[in-house]
Amino acid sequence: MIVGEQKPLEEIWEMIKDHKKVLVFGCNTCVAVCQQGGNKEAEILASMLRMKAVQEGVDIEITDAGIERQCEHEFFEKAESRIGDADAVLSTACGIGVQFMAEKYPKPIYPGLNTTFLGAVEEFGVYAERCQACGTCILGQTGGICPIARCAKRVLNGPCGGSTNGKCEISKDVDCAWQLIVDRLRLLGRMDDYEALTPIKDWSTDRAGGPRKLVREDLIDE
């Protein structure tokens, strides 16, 4: 899922403070899982901003609403009137939702979150990166652990010389991806594969190739 983290209240306030009617608009799928941008969190954020407005003595109407996903047209139908009433929207979706709304509505759409990464819920309250959407998956060769997302140097033939006690040179709190890969290859009885050189990567399927698009001709109505 896409993980996000709410921006500092001060930063949000600076974006919205000059508007009269602001809608805090939640996105109840990915970012709701990490309890940062769902409809419930949008409601809490709206109330914090109302308190802030009172403190600052600013006359601003702040309401909240939300939909299941801000990255698909069909979900917006039930919220059209709420969005239409607002001068500006503070979207608590990921950066995709914010942009999707900005394309749809000719009014300011501000980001309430910093979109952080594509990750998993390691345990309640702990979310960690797993994928960088490079467009050419090599997990089949690396024992199911991605060195692009999980190695600080995205080394494809690792580990580098900085791996110590299973941890990355950048922090004792970060697992060395290549230690995990080696452990996993050993578990799977595939240590012989370790000595195969990973070829130079074609990054054209990554962001290097420009904005990416997938078109499924078979699904598009004539």
Partner: peptide, 14 residues
């Protein structure tokens, strides 16, 4: 001297 130690020679071979 880096970890994991048991692949340090394999890594040199690589």
């Amino acid at each position: 001297f880096a970890d994991p130690y048991d692949i340090r020679v394999s890594r040199l071979a690589k």
